[in-house]
Design a protein around this nucleic acid. Structure first.
Length: 572
RNA sequence: CACCCCCUAGCUCAGCUGGUUAGAGCAUCUCACUUUUAAUGAGAGGGUCCUGGGUUCGAGCCCCAGGGGGGUGACCA
Protein backbone atom coordinates (compact mmCIF):
# COMPACT_ATOMS: atom_id res chain seq x y z
CA UNK A 1 0.00 0.00 0.00
CA UNK A 2 1.50 3.34 -0.95
CA UNK A 3 0.67 6.79 0.34
CA UNK A 4 -1.25 7.80 -2.76
CA UNK A 5 -3.98 5.21 -2.63
CA UNK A 6 -4.55 5.03 1.12
CA UNK A 7 -8.07 5.95 2.05
CA UNK A 8 -7.91 8.91 4.41
CA UNK A 9 -10.74 10.31 6.46
CA UNK A 10 -11.36 14.02 6.54
CA UNK A 11 -9.72 14.33 9.94
CA UNK A 12 -6.65 12.45 8.72
CA UNK A 13 -6.31 14.65 5.66
CA UNK A 14 -6.47 17.76 7.84
CA UNK A 15 -3.75 16.38 10.07
CA UNK A 16 -1.55 15.51 7.09
CA UNK A 17 -2.00 19.08 5.90
CA UNK A 18 -1.02 20.40 9.37
CA UNK A 19 2.08 18.23 9.20
CA UNK A 20 3.09 19.83 5.92
CA UNK A 21 2.54 23.28 7.38
CA UNK A 22 4.74 22.47 10.36
CA UNK A 23 7.48 21.53 7.91
CA UNK A 24 6.97 24.81 6.05
CA UNK A 25 7.48 26.67 9.33
CA UNK A 26 10.81 24.87 9.66
CA UNK A 27 9.50 22.57 12.40
CA UNK A 28 10.43 18.91 12.08
CA UNK A 29 7.33 17.01 13.19
CA UNK A 30 9.48 13.94 13.92
CA UNK A 31 12.73 15.33 15.36
CA UNK A 32 15.64 12.97 15.97
CA UNK A 33 17.14 14.64 19.03
CA UNK A 34 16.63 13.25 22.52
CA UNK A 35 14.33 15.29 24.71
CA UNK A 36 15.62 16.06 28.24
CA UNK A 37 12.63 14.89 30.27
CA UNK A 38 13.34 15.38 33.97
CA UNK A 39 10.04 14.40 35.58
CA UNK A 40 6.75 12.63 35.01
CA UNK A 41 3.12 13.52 35.52
CA UNK A 42 2.53 11.19 38.45
CA UNK A 43 5.73 12.22 40.22
CA UNK A 44 4.78 15.89 39.86
CA UNK A 45 1.31 15.35 41.22
CA UNK A 46 2.49 13.10 44.04
CA UNK A 47 4.41 15.84 45.82
CA UNK A 48 3.27 18.94 44.08
CA UNK A 49 5.18 22.11 44.77
CA UNK A 50 4.71 25.41 42.99
CA UNK A 51 7.33 27.34 41.02
CA UNK A 52 9.42 24.35 40.06
CA UNK A 53 11.13 24.34 36.70
CA UNK A 54 10.17 21.12 34.96
CA UNK A 55 10.62 19.44 31.61
CA UNK A 56 8.30 16.65 30.60
CA UNK A 57 6.95 15.04 27.50
CA UNK A 58 3.81 13.22 26.56
CA UNK A 59 0.73 13.09 24.46
CA UNK A 60 -1.89 15.82 24.24
CA UNK A 61 -5.12 14.11 25.29
CA UNK A 62 -7.45 17.07 25.25
CA UNK A 63 -7.33 20.81 24.67
CA UNK A 64 -9.44 23.66 26.00
CA UNK A 65 -8.59 26.73 23.99
CA UNK A 66 -9.81 30.11 25.19
CA UNK A 67 -8.33 32.70 22.92
CA UNK A 68 -4.98 33.78 24.24
CA UNK A 69 -4.90 31.09 26.90
CA UNK A 70 -5.36 27.36 26.72
CA UNK A 71 -5.38 24.30 28.88
CA UNK A 72 -4.41 20.86 27.73
CA UNK A 73 -4.07 17.47 29.32
CA UNK A 74 -0.68 15.89 28.84
CA UNK A 75 -0.41 12.14 29.33
CA UNK A 76 2.90 10.36 29.82
CA UNK A 77 3.72 6.83 30.89
CA UNK A 78 2.91 7.64 34.50
CA UNK A 79 -0.37 9.50 34.15
CA UNK A 80 -1.82 12.87 33.26
CA UNK A 81 -1.15 16.45 34.21
CA UNK A 82 -2.74 19.67 33.11
CA UNK A 83 -0.62 22.14 31.20
CA UNK A 84 -1.46 25.80 30.75
CA UNK A 85 -0.41 27.68 27.66
CA UNK A 86 -0.58 31.45 27.63
CA UNK A 87 0.18 33.28 24.40
CA UNK A 88 2.50 35.86 25.93
CA UNK A 89 4.22 33.43 28.27
CA UNK A 90 4.92 31.01 25.45
CA UNK A 91 5.83 33.80 23.01
CA UNK A 92 7.29 36.73 24.95
CA UNK A 93 8.56 38.34 21.71
CA UNK A 94 6.63 39.89 18.84
CA UNK A 95 6.32 36.59 17.01
CA UNK A 96 3.27 34.74 18.32
CA UNK A 97 3.44 31.91 15.77
CA UNK A 98 4.30 29.23 18.32
CA UNK A 99 1.03 29.82 20.17
CA UNK A 100 -1.33 31.11 17.50
CA UNK A 101 -0.33 28.77 14.71
CA UNK A 102 1.66 25.84 16.03
CA UNK A 103 -0.29 25.12 19.20
CA UNK A 104 -3.74 26.36 18.25
CA UNK A 105 -3.88 25.35 14.59
CA UNK A 106 -1.32 22.69 13.80
CA UNK A 107 -1.27 20.54 16.91
CA UNK A 108 -4.02 18.06 17.69
CA UNK A 109 -5.17 15.65 20.32
CA UNK A 110 -2.82 12.70 20.19
CA UNK A 111 0.30 14.62 19.24
CA UNK A 112 3.42 14.01 21.30
CA UNK A 113 5.04 17.16 22.62
CA UNK A 114 7.71 18.17 25.08
CA UNK A 115 7.22 21.11 27.39
CA UNK A 116 9.43 23.17 29.66
CA UNK A 117 7.80 25.42 32.23
CA UNK A 118 6.99 26.10 35.85
CA UNK A 119 4.51 24.42 38.14
CA UNK A 120 1.59 26.36 39.61
CA UNK A 121 -1.92 25.83 40.89
CA UNK A 122 -4.89 27.21 39.01
CA UNK A 123 -7.77 29.16 40.52
CA UNK A 124 -9.76 25.95 40.66
CA UNK A 125 -6.92 24.23 42.51
CA UNK A 126 -5.66 22.01 39.70
CA UNK A 127 -1.89 21.32 39.76
CA UNK A 128 -0.62 22.55 36.41
CA UNK A 129 2.46 23.47 34.43
CA UNK A 130 2.78 26.91 32.86
CA UNK A 131 4.41 26.22 29.51
CA UNK A 132 7.35 28.41 28.52
CA UNK A 133 8.65 26.22 25.72
CA UNK A 134 6.79 23.78 23.52
CA UNK A 135 8.48 21.22 21.26
CA UNK A 136 6.73 19.03 18.71
CA UNK A 137 8.09 15.50 19.21
CA UNK A 138 5.73 13.46 17.04
CA UNK A 139 2.75 14.44 14.96
CA UNK A 140 -0.19 12.06 15.08
CA UNK A 141 -2.14 11.76 11.86
CA UNK A 142 -4.96 9.59 13.15
CA UNK A 143 -7.62 10.99 15.48
CA UNK A 144 -7.62 9.43 18.93
CA UNK A 145 -10.99 8.30 20.34
CA UNK A 146 -12.26 11.11 22.52
CA UNK A 147 -12.91 9.45 25.84
CA UNK A 148 -14.05 11.86 28.53
CA UNK A 149 -14.73 11.58 32.21
CA UNK A 150 -17.17 13.87 33.98
CA UNK A 151 -17.23 15.18 37.56
CA UNK A 152 -18.95 12.07 38.87
CA UNK A 153 -16.36 9.85 37.21
CA UNK A 154 -18.68 8.67 34.47
CA UNK A 155 -16.85 7.83 31.28
CA UNK A 156 -18.37 9.16 28.07
CA UNK A 157 -17.75 7.91 24.55
CA UNK A 158 -15.50 5.18 25.92
CA UNK A 159 -13.42 3.19 23.45
CA UNK A 160 -15.04 -0.16 24.15
CA UNK A 161 -15.43 -2.18 20.94
CA UNK A 162 -13.50 -5.37 21.77
CA UNK A 163 -12.42 -5.93 18.20
CA UNK A 164 -10.94 -2.45 17.88
CA UNK A 165 -9.43 -2.59 21.36
CA UNK A 166 -7.63 -5.90 20.68
CA UNK A 167 -6.57 -5.08 17.15
CA UNK A 168 -5.31 -1.64 18.15
CA UNK A 169 -4.07 -2.27 21.67
CA UNK A 170 -1.86 0.81 21.40
CA UNK A 171 -4.99 2.96 21.21
CA UNK A 172 -6.67 0.96 23.96
CA UNK A 173 -3.71 1.53 26.26
CA UNK A 174 -3.64 5.24 25.50
CA UNK A 175 -7.26 6.02 26.21
CA UNK A 176 -8.22 3.35 28.75
CA UNK A 177 -6.03 3.73 31.83
CA UNK A 178 -7.52 0.65 33.52
CA UNK A 179 -6.19 -1.50 30.67
CA UNK A 180 -2.70 -0.33 31.41
CA UNK A 181 -3.21 -1.22 35.07
CA UNK A 182 -4.11 -4.78 34.13
CA UNK A 183 -0.90 -5.24 32.17
CA UNK A 184 1.17 -3.63 34.90
CA UNK A 185 -0.35 -6.19 37.26
CA UNK A 186 0.69 -8.94 34.85
CA UNK A 187 4.29 -7.79 35.02
CA UNK A 188 4.12 -7.60 38.82
CA UNK A 189 2.92 -11.20 38.96
CA UNK A 190 5.79 -12.40 36.80
CA UNK A 191 8.36 -10.33 38.66
CA UNK A 192 7.15 -11.53 42.06
CA UNK A 193 7.46 -15.15 40.96
CA UNK A 194 10.88 -14.59 39.44
CA UNK A 195 12.21 -12.77 42.50
CA UNK A 196 10.87 -15.41 44.83
CA UNK A 197 12.59 -18.20 42.88
CA UNK A 198 15.83 -16.34 42.40
CA UNK A 199 16.06 -15.73 46.15
CA UNK A 200 16.00 -19.49 46.57
CA UNK A 201 18.84 -19.87 44.12
CA UNK A 202 16.88 -21.58 41.37
CA UNK A 203 17.97 -21.02 37.82
CA UNK A 204 15.84 -19.35 35.16
CA UNK A 205 16.46 -21.19 31.90
CA UNK A 206 15.48 -21.25 28.24
CA UNK A 207 14.56 -24.47 26.48
CA UNK A 208 13.58 -25.16 22.87
CA UNK A 209 10.38 -23.79 21.44
CA UNK A 210 10.91 -25.75 18.24
CA UNK A 211 10.72 -29.42 19.12
CA UNK A 212 10.97 -32.56 17.02
CA UNK A 213 8.64 -34.32 19.47
CA UNK A 214 5.99 -32.16 21.11
CA UNK A 215 6.04 -33.74 24.56
CA UNK A 216 5.18 -32.97 28.15
CA UNK A 217 1.45 -32.54 27.68
CA UNK A 218 -1.43 -33.82 25.61
CA UNK A 219 -2.55 -31.34 23.01
CA UNK A 220 -2.61 -30.78 19.27
CA UNK A 221 0.58 -28.97 18.27
CA UNK A 222 1.30 -26.38 15.61
CA UNK A 223 3.50 -27.87 12.94
CA UNK A 224 6.22 -26.24 10.92
CA UNK A 225 9.11 -27.37 8.76
CA UNK A 226 12.83 -26.91 8.97
CA UNK A 227 14.22 -26.45 5.48
CA UNK A 228 17.89 -27.22 6.06
CA UNK A 229 17.20 -30.41 7.99
CA UNK A 230 14.12 -31.15 5.90
CA UNK A 231 12.18 -32.35 8.93
CA UNK A 232 8.90 -31.42 10.52
CA UNK A 233 9.16 -29.44 13.74
CA UNK A 234 6.50 -28.58 16.29
CA UNK A 235 5.99 -25.51 18.40
CA UNK A 236 6.16 -26.66 21.98
CA UNK A 237 2.99 -27.56 23.82
CA UNK A 238 4.98 -27.77 27.06
CA UNK A 239 8.57 -27.54 28.24
CA UNK A 240 8.32 -30.12 31.01
CA UNK A 241 10.51 -32.82 29.52
CA UNK A 242 13.34 -30.38 28.83
CA UNK A 243 13.34 -28.99 32.36
CA UNK A 244 13.52 -32.54 33.73
CA UNK A 245 16.53 -33.20 31.50
CA UNK A 246 18.16 -30.24 33.24
CA UNK A 247 17.41 -31.77 36.64
CA UNK A 248 19.11 -34.95 35.37
CA UNK A 249 21.96 -32.66 34.37
CA UNK A 250 22.51 -31.69 37.98
CA UNK A 251 20.66 -28.43 38.63
CA UNK A 252 18.76 -28.31 41.93
CA UNK A 253 16.04 -25.99 40.73
CA UNK A 254 15.14 -24.73 37.27
CA UNK A 255 12.22 -22.66 36.06
CA UNK A 256 11.04 -21.11 32.85
CA UNK A 257 8.23 -18.84 31.83
CA UNK A 258 7.28 -20.91 28.84
CA UNK A 259 5.24 -19.62 25.94
CA UNK A 260 3.33 -22.70 24.83
CA UNK A 261 1.36 -23.20 21.65
CA UNK A 262 -1.69 -25.40 21.26
CA UNK A 263 -3.62 -25.75 18.06
CA UNK A 264 -7.06 -25.91 19.60
CA UNK A 265 -10.14 -23.81 20.06
CA UNK A 266 -10.10 -20.20 21.13
CA UNK A 267 -12.44 -18.74 23.69
CA UNK A 268 -12.32 -16.49 26.67
CA UNK A 269 -9.99 -18.84 28.56
CA UNK A 270 -7.91 -20.17 25.65
CA UNK A 271 -5.49 -18.43 23.33
CA UNK A 272 -3.32 -20.43 20.86
CA UNK A 273 -0.21 -19.14 22.59
CA UNK A 274 -0.17 -18.77 26.33
CA UNK A 275 2.30 -18.73 29.18
CA UNK A 276 2.97 -21.38 31.77
CA UNK A 277 5.61 -21.00 34.42
CA UNK A 278 7.18 -24.36 35.14
CA UNK A 279 9.39 -25.06 38.12
CA UNK A 280 11.30 -28.27 38.97
CA UNK A 281 13.14 -28.75 42.25
CA UNK A 282 15.23 -31.80 43.03
CA UNK A 283 14.90 -33.80 46.25
CA UNK A 284 11.40 -32.49 46.95
CA UNK A 285 7.93 -34.00 46.72
CA UNK A 286 4.44 -32.72 46.08
CA UNK A 287 3.73 -31.99 49.73
CA UNK A 288 6.63 -29.59 49.77
CA UNK A 289 5.38 -28.14 46.51
CA UNK A 290 1.95 -27.37 47.96
CA UNK A 291 3.56 -25.32 50.68
CA UNK A 292 5.79 -23.58 48.14
CA UNK A 293 2.82 -22.66 45.96
CA UNK A 294 0.75 -21.35 48.87
CA UNK A 295 3.54 -19.09 49.96
CA UNK A 296 4.27 -18.02 46.41
CA UNK A 297 0.68 -17.06 45.60
CA UNK A 298 0.28 -15.19 48.87
CA UNK A 299 3.33 -13.18 47.93
CA UNK A 300 2.18 -12.64 44.35
CA UNK A 301 -1.23 -11.39 45.47
CA UNK A 302 0.48 -9.03 47.88
CA UNK A 303 2.72 -7.73 45.11
CA UNK A 304 -0.34 -6.83 43.04
CA UNK A 305 -2.82 -5.71 45.70
CA UNK A 306 -0.75 -5.10 48.82
CA UNK A 307 -2.76 -7.81 50.56
CA UNK A 308 -3.22 -11.56 50.30
CA UNK A 309 -6.90 -11.08 49.47
CA UNK A 310 -8.49 -9.99 46.21
CA UNK A 311 -11.94 -9.69 44.71
CA UNK A 312 -12.91 -11.86 41.78
CA UNK A 313 -16.34 -11.73 40.16
CA UNK A 314 -17.76 -10.16 43.30
CA UNK A 315 -16.30 -12.83 45.58
CA UNK A 316 -13.40 -12.34 47.94
CA UNK A 317 -10.60 -14.76 47.25
CA UNK A 318 -8.17 -15.32 50.08
CA UNK A 319 -4.67 -16.33 49.08
CA UNK A 320 -3.41 -16.49 52.66
CA UNK A 321 -1.80 -19.90 53.27
CA UNK A 322 -2.54 -22.66 54.02
CA UNK A 323 -5.05 -23.85 51.43
CA UNK A 324 -7.61 -26.58 51.77
CA UNK A 325 -6.55 -30.02 50.51
CA UNK A 326 -9.04 -32.52 49.11
CA UNK A 327 -8.22 -35.79 47.39
CA UNK A 328 -9.70 -36.42 43.97
CA UNK A 329 -11.53 -39.44 45.40
CA UNK A 330 -13.08 -37.40 48.24
CA UNK A 331 -14.01 -34.57 45.89
CA UNK A 332 -15.93 -36.92 43.63
CA UNK A 333 -17.43 -38.75 46.58
CA UNK A 334 -18.56 -35.48 48.15
CA UNK A 335 -20.20 -34.04 45.04
CA UNK A 336 -21.53 -37.17 43.32
CA UNK A 337 -21.74 -39.81 46.02
CA UNK A 338 -19.64 -42.09 43.82
CA UNK A 339 -16.57 -43.75 45.30
CA UNK A 340 -14.14 -44.25 42.43
CA UNK A 341 -11.77 -46.24 44.60
CA UNK A 342 -11.25 -49.63 43.01
CA UNK A 343 -13.81 -49.07 40.24
CA UNK A 344 -13.00 -50.52 36.86
CA UNK A 345 -13.59 -48.85 33.52
CA UNK A 346 -17.01 -50.43 33.15
CA UNK A 347 -18.13 -49.26 36.57
CA UNK A 348 -16.88 -45.75 35.90
CA UNK A 349 -18.65 -45.65 32.56
CA UNK A 350 -21.88 -46.63 34.31
CA UNK A 351 -21.33 -44.02 37.02
CA UNK A 352 -20.89 -41.36 34.36
CA UNK A 353 -24.05 -42.49 32.62
CA UNK A 354 -25.95 -42.24 35.95
CA UNK A 355 -24.70 -38.67 36.33
CA UNK A 356 -25.75 -37.73 32.77
CA UNK A 357 -22.14 -37.18 31.74
CA UNK A 358 -21.48 -37.72 28.07
CA UNK A 359 -18.73 -40.23 27.43
CA UNK A 360 -17.44 -42.10 24.41
CA UNK A 361 -15.58 -45.31 23.65
CA UNK A 362 -12.17 -43.67 23.30
CA UNK A 363 -12.19 -42.70 26.97
CA UNK A 364 -10.13 -44.74 29.37
CA UNK A 365 -10.36 -44.80 33.15
CA UNK A 366 -8.40 -41.62 33.62
CA UNK A 367 -10.48 -39.63 31.23
CA UNK A 368 -13.75 -40.91 32.73
CA UNK A 369 -12.71 -39.85 36.21
CA UNK A 370 -11.55 -36.53 34.85
CA UNK A 371 -14.98 -36.02 33.27
CA UNK A 372 -16.71 -36.72 36.59
CA UNK A 373 -14.50 -34.24 38.38
CA UNK A 374 -14.80 -31.61 35.66
CA UNK A 375 -18.58 -31.90 35.39
CA UNK A 376 -19.54 -32.20 39.04
CA UNK A 377 -16.77 -30.93 41.30
CA UNK A 378 -14.54 -28.24 39.79
CA UNK A 379 -17.02 -25.39 40.11
CA UNK A 380 -17.35 -25.84 43.87
CA UNK A 381 -13.76 -24.88 44.62
CA UNK A 382 -13.86 -21.11 44.78
CA UNK A 383 -11.25 -20.48 47.47
CA UNK A 384 -7.78 -21.82 46.63
CA UNK A 385 -7.99 -25.59 47.01
CA UNK A 386 -5.48 -28.34 46.27
CA UNK A 387 -7.10 -31.36 44.66
CA UNK A 388 -4.67 -34.21 45.30
CA UNK A 389 -3.93 -37.81 44.39
CA UNK A 390 -5.08 -38.25 40.80
CA UNK A 391 -5.66 -41.72 39.34
CA UNK A 392 -2.61 -43.10 37.64
CA UNK A 393 -4.32 -43.37 34.24
CA UNK A 394 -4.61 -39.61 33.85
CA UNK A 395 -1.10 -38.74 34.98
CA UNK A 396 1.50 -40.37 32.75
CA UNK A 397 4.41 -38.29 34.05
CA UNK A 398 3.67 -38.63 37.75
CA UNK A 399 5.15 -40.91 40.37
CA UNK A 400 2.73 -43.46 41.77
CA UNK A 401 1.46 -42.70 45.25
CA UNK A 402 3.78 -43.89 48.00
CA UNK A 403 0.94 -45.73 49.82
CA UNK A 404 -2.26 -45.52 47.73
CA UNK A 405 -2.10 -47.98 44.86
CA UNK A 406 -3.76 -46.79 41.63
CA UNK A 407 -3.18 -43.13 42.50
CA UNK A 408 -0.37 -40.71 41.85
CA UNK A 409 1.34 -38.00 43.81
CA UNK A 410 -0.20 -35.15 41.94
CA UNK A 411 -2.20 -32.06 42.79
CA UNK A 412 -3.96 -29.34 40.93
CA UNK A 413 -4.78 -25.98 42.46
CA UNK A 414 -8.30 -24.73 41.82
CA UNK A 415 -9.44 -21.17 42.34
CA UNK A 416 -12.90 -19.96 41.45
CA UNK A 417 -13.60 -23.31 39.81
CA UNK A 418 -10.65 -23.04 37.45
CA UNK A 419 -7.39 -24.97 37.40
CA UNK A 420 -4.49 -22.66 38.00
CA UNK A 421 -1.59 -25.00 38.74
CA UNK A 422 -0.68 -28.64 38.19
CA UNK A 423 2.09 -30.35 40.12
CA UNK A 424 3.63 -33.76 40.70
CA UNK A 425 6.15 -35.74 42.52
CA UNK A 426 7.82 -36.35 39.17
CA UNK A 427 8.05 -39.86 37.83
CA UNK A 428 11.75 -40.72 37.78
CA UNK A 429 11.51 -44.48 37.34
CA UNK A 430 12.59 -44.96 33.71
CA UNK A 431 10.99 -48.40 33.43
CA UNK A 432 7.66 -47.17 34.75
CA UNK A 433 7.86 -44.07 32.56
CA UNK A 434 8.38 -46.16 29.44
CA UNK A 435 5.33 -48.27 30.31
CA UNK A 436 3.22 -45.18 30.91
CA UNK A 437 4.19 -43.81 27.52
CA UNK A 438 3.23 -47.12 25.96
CA UNK A 439 -0.19 -46.88 27.60
CA UNK A 440 -0.52 -43.45 26.01
CA UNK A 441 0.29 -44.96 22.64
CA UNK A 442 -2.45 -47.50 23.23
CA UNK A 443 -4.88 -44.69 24.01
CA UNK A 444 -3.78 -42.92 20.88
CA UNK A 445 -4.45 -46.04 18.83
CA UNK A 446 -7.85 -46.21 20.41
CA UNK A 447 -8.63 -42.76 18.98
CA UNK A 448 -7.56 -40.34 21.67
CA UNK A 449 -5.84 -37.73 19.51
CA UNK A 450 -4.45 -35.99 22.54
CA UNK A 451 -2.48 -38.85 24.01
CA UNK A 452 1.23 -38.25 24.39
CA UNK A 453 4.03 -38.93 21.98
CA UNK A 454 6.98 -41.06 23.12
CA UNK A 455 10.18 -39.12 23.63
CA UNK A 456 13.03 -41.65 23.50
CA UNK A 457 15.71 -39.16 24.45
CA UNK A 458 13.75 -38.16 27.52
CA UNK A 459 13.57 -41.83 28.55
CA UNK A 460 17.31 -42.14 27.98
CA UNK A 461 17.85 -39.13 30.25
CA UNK A 462 15.74 -40.77 32.97
CA UNK A 463 17.80 -43.93 32.56
CA UNK A 464 20.87 -41.94 33.60
CA UNK A 465 18.95 -41.23 36.81
CA UNK A 466 16.85 -38.24 37.80
CA UNK A 467 16.82 -37.37 41.48
CA UNK A 468 13.42 -37.38 43.11
CA UNK A 469 11.91 -34.12 41.99
CA UNK A 470 8.79 -32.12 42.40
CA UNK A 471 7.54 -29.96 39.54
CA UNK A 472 4.73 -27.53 38.98
CA UNK A 473 3.20 -25.59 36.13
CA UNK A 474 1.25 -22.41 36.80
CA UNK A 475 -0.99 -20.92 34.13
CA UNK A 476 0.23 -17.35 34.19
CA UNK A 477 -2.52 -15.91 32.01
CA UNK A 478 -5.24 -17.40 34.18
CA UNK A 479 -3.50 -16.38 37.36
CA UNK A 480 -3.34 -12.81 36.09
CA UNK A 481 -7.03 -12.99 35.13
CA UNK A 482 -7.86 -13.96 38.69
CA UNK A 483 -5.70 -11.30 40.25
CA UNK A 484 -7.10 -8.57 37.99
CA UNK A 485 -10.74 -9.70 38.07
CA UNK A 486 -10.89 -10.28 34.33
CA UNK A 487 -13.12 -12.89 32.71
CA UNK A 488 -11.39 -13.01 29.34
CA UNK A 489 -7.84 -14.11 28.53
CA UNK A 490 -7.81 -11.46 25.84
CA UNK A 491 -7.79 -8.83 28.55
CA UNK A 492 -4.49 -10.10 29.95
CA UNK A 493 -2.67 -10.63 26.64
CA UNK A 494 -1.43 -7.50 24.91
CA UNK A 495 -2.10 -8.94 21.48
CA UNK A 496 -4.60 -11.80 21.63
CA UNK A 497 -4.86 -13.94 18.52
CA UNK A 498 -7.34 -12.56 16.00
CA UNK A 499 -8.21 -13.34 12.42
CA UNK A 500 -5.86 -11.27 10.29
CA UNK A 501 -7.36 -7.96 9.41
CA UNK A 502 -8.09 -7.20 5.78
CA UNK A 503 -6.88 -3.73 4.99
CA UNK A 504 -8.97 -1.91 2.49
CA UNK A 505 -6.80 -0.06 0.06
CA UNK A 506 -7.83 2.63 -2.28
CA UNK A 507 -7.81 2.13 -6.05
CA UNK A 508 -4.49 1.71 -7.79
CA UNK A 509 -4.37 5.08 -9.50
CA UNK A 510 -1.10 4.33 -11.27
CA UNK A 511 -2.82 1.52 -13.18
CA UNK A 512 -5.44 3.99 -14.40
CA UNK A 513 -2.76 6.48 -15.36
CA UNK A 514 -0.86 3.77 -17.21
CA UNK A 515 -3.81 3.34 -19.55
CA UNK A 516 -3.89 7.04 -20.34
CA UNK A 517 -6.14 8.57 -17.70
CA UNK A 518 -4.65 11.99 -16.84
CA UNK A 519 -3.24 12.08 -13.31
CA UNK A 520 -5.54 14.92 -12.24
CA UNK A 521 -8.54 12.93 -13.44
CA UNK A 522 -7.51 9.54 -12.08
CA UNK A 523 -8.74 9.92 -8.47
CA UNK A 524 -12.08 11.23 -9.71
CA UNK A 525 -12.47 8.47 -12.27
CA UNK A 526 -11.87 6.00 -9.45
CA UNK A 527 -14.28 7.80 -7.14
CA UNK A 528 -16.93 7.67 -9.84
CA UNK A 529 -16.77 3.90 -9.61
CA UNK A 530 -14.21 3.07 -12.32
CA UNK A 531 -11.39 2.10 -10.03
CA UNK A 532 -9.72 -0.65 -12.07
CA UNK A 533 -8.52 -0.83 -15.67
CA UNK A 534 -11.05 -3.62 -16.20
CA UNK A 535 -13.95 -1.40 -15.09
CA UNK A 536 -12.94 1.15 -17.69
CA UNK A 537 -12.36 -1.34 -20.47
CA UNK A 538 -15.76 -2.92 -19.94
CA UNK A 539 -17.49 0.43 -20.44
CA UNK A 540 -18.66 2.03 -23.67
CA UNK A 541 -16.56 5.17 -24.24
CA UNK A 542 -19.56 7.42 -24.85
CA UNK A 543 -21.37 6.28 -21.73
CA UNK A 544 -18.20 6.50 -19.70
CA UNK A 545 -17.55 10.06 -20.91
CA UNK A 546 -21.09 11.04 -20.04
CA UNK A 547 -20.87 9.61 -16.54
CA UNK A 548 -17.52 11.20 -15.81
CA UNK A 549 -18.59 14.61 -17.05
CA UNK A 550 -21.72 14.27 -14.96
CA UNK A 551 -19.52 13.44 -11.96
CA UNK A 552 -17.41 16.50 -12.79
CA UNK A 553 -20.45 18.74 -12.81
CA UNK A 554 -21.98 17.29 -9.66
CA UNK A 555 -18.75 17.63 -7.69
CA UNK A 556 -17.83 20.96 -9.29
CA UNK A 557 -14.41 19.65 -10.32
CA UNK A 558 -12.01 22.30 -11.51
CA UNK A 559 -11.02 20.28 -14.60
CA UNK A 560 -11.81 20.62 -18.29
CA UNK A 561 -14.67 18.41 -19.48
CA UNK A 562 -13.56 15.16 -21.12
CA UNK A 563 -13.67 14.76 -24.88
CA UNK A 564 -14.91 11.54 -26.47
CA UNK A 565 -11.58 10.90 -28.26
CA UNK A 566 -9.77 11.08 -24.90
CA UNK A 567 -12.01 8.50 -23.31
CA UNK A 568 -11.80 6.27 -26.39
CA UNK A 569 -8.01 6.30 -26.14
CA UNK A 570 -8.21 4.82 -22.59
CA UNK A 571 -10.56 2.05 -23.55
CA UNK A 572 -8.41 0.78 -26.40
C1' C B 1 -18.22 -26.87 15.46
C1' A B 2 -23.57 -25.33 17.06
C1' C B 3 -26.92 -21.56 18.63
C1' C B 4 -27.87 -16.35 19.73
C1' C B 5 -26.49 -11.20 19.19
C1' C B 6 -23.76 -7.12 16.91
C1' C B 7 -21.44 -4.35 12.54
C1' U B 8 -24.52 3.11 10.61
C1' A B 9 -19.39 9.61 10.70
C1' G B 10 -12.76 9.57 13.93
C1' C B 11 -15.39 7.59 18.98
C1' U B 12 -20.11 6.24 21.51
C1' C B 13 -24.80 5.42 19.66
C1' A B 14 -30.24 6.63 17.62
C1' G B 15 -32.74 5.41 13.14
C1' C B 16 -40.44 3.61 14.24
C1' U B 17 -44.54 -0.52 10.12
C1' G B 18 -39.72 -0.40 4.14
C1' G B 19 -41.02 5.95 2.23
C1' U B 20 -38.18 13.02 1.01
C1' U B 21 -31.55 14.84 0.93
C1' A B 22 -29.58 8.86 7.02
C1' G B 23 -29.46 11.73 12.59
C1' A B 24 -27.42 13.08 17.85
C1' G B 25 -23.40 13.95 21.44
C1' C B 26 -18.28 14.16 21.50
C1' A B 27 -14.26 14.78 17.91
C1' U B 28 -12.90 17.91 13.30
C1' C B 29 -12.99 22.87 10.64
C1' U B 30 -14.17 28.51 10.90
C1' C B 31 -15.08 32.69 14.28
C1' A B 32 -15.11 34.73 19.45
C1' C B 33 -12.92 34.18 24.23
C1' U B 34 -6.14 35.32 29.20
C1' U B 35 -7.33 30.23 34.93
C1' U B 36 -10.49 26.08 32.03
C1' U B 37 -11.35 20.96 33.35
C1' A B 38 -17.19 16.48 29.77
C1' A B 39 -14.70 24.61 29.04
C1' U B 40 -18.37 27.91 26.66
C1' G B 41 -21.11 30.57 22.52
C1' A B 42 -22.08 30.95 17.09
C1' G B 43 -21.59 28.62 12.39
C1' A B 44 -19.79 24.66 8.93
C1' G B 45 -18.00 20.16 6.90
C1' G B 46 -17.72 14.94 7.40
C1' G B 47 -21.19 8.43 5.43
C1' U B 48 -18.85 2.10 0.76
C1' C B 49 -25.23 2.17 6.69
C1' C B 50 -19.45 -4.68 6.76
C1' U B 51 -19.58 -7.07 1.46
C1' G B 52 -22.32 -9.34 -2.63
C1' G B 53 -26.89 -10.86 -4.52
C1' G B 54 -32.41 -10.77 -4.23
C1' U B 55 -37.59 -8.89 -3.24
C1' U B 56 -39.84 -3.98 -4.05
C1' C B 57 -42.03 1.79 -7.48
C1' G B 58 -38.63 2.43 -3.27
C1' A B 59 -33.97 -1.18 1.32
C1' G B 60 -29.79 1.17 6.79
C1' C B 61 -34.45 -1.66 7.79
C1' C B 62 -37.12 -7.54 4.62
C1' C B 63 -34.87 -12.38 2.25
C1' C B 64 -30.35 -15.35 0.72
C1' A B 65 -25.06 -15.97 0.72
C1' G B 66 -20.41 -14.37 2.57
C1' G B 67 -16.93 -11.58 6.04
C1' G B 68 -15.50 -9.77 10.89
C1' G B 69 -16.47 -9.51 16.10
C1' G B 70 -18.89 -10.73 20.75
C1' G B 71 -21.69 -14.11 24.01
C1' U B 72 -23.22 -19.11 25.37
C1' G B 73 -22.37 -24.16 24.78
C1' A B 74 -19.25 -28.17 22.84
C1' C B 75 -14.02 -28.97 22.84
C1' C B 76 -9.69 -28.01 25.90
C1' A B 77 -5.67 -32.64 31.76
Amino acid sequence: MNQANMIRSEQERIRLESLQQLRQLGIDPYPAAAYPVDTHAAALAADFAEDREVCLAGRILSRRIMGKASFAELQDSSGRIQIYLNRDELCPDEDKTQYNTVFKKLLDRGDVVGIKGTTFTTQTGEPSVLVKELTVLSKSIRPLPSVKTDDEGNVHDAFTDPELRYRMRYVDLLVNPHVKKTFEARTKVIQAIRESFMEKGWLEVDTPVLQAIPGGAAARPFMTHHNALDIPLYLRIANELYLKRLIVGGFDGVFEFSRNFRNEGMDRTHNPEFTIMELYVAYQDYHWMMETIENLLGRVCKAVHGSTKTTLAGKEIDFTPPYRKVTMRDAILEHTGVDIDGMDEKGLRQACANLDIEVDETMGKGKLIDEMFGECCEEHYVQPTFITDYPVEMSPLTKVHRDKPGYTERFELFINGTEIANAYSELNDPIDQRERFEEQVALSERGDDEAMFIDQDFLRALEYGMPPTSGVGIGIDRLVMMLTDQTSIQEVLFFPQMRPEVFRTGPDLSALEAMGVPSDWAPHVAAAGFDTPEAIQESKPAALREKLNGFRKKNKLDLPALQLEEVESWVQ
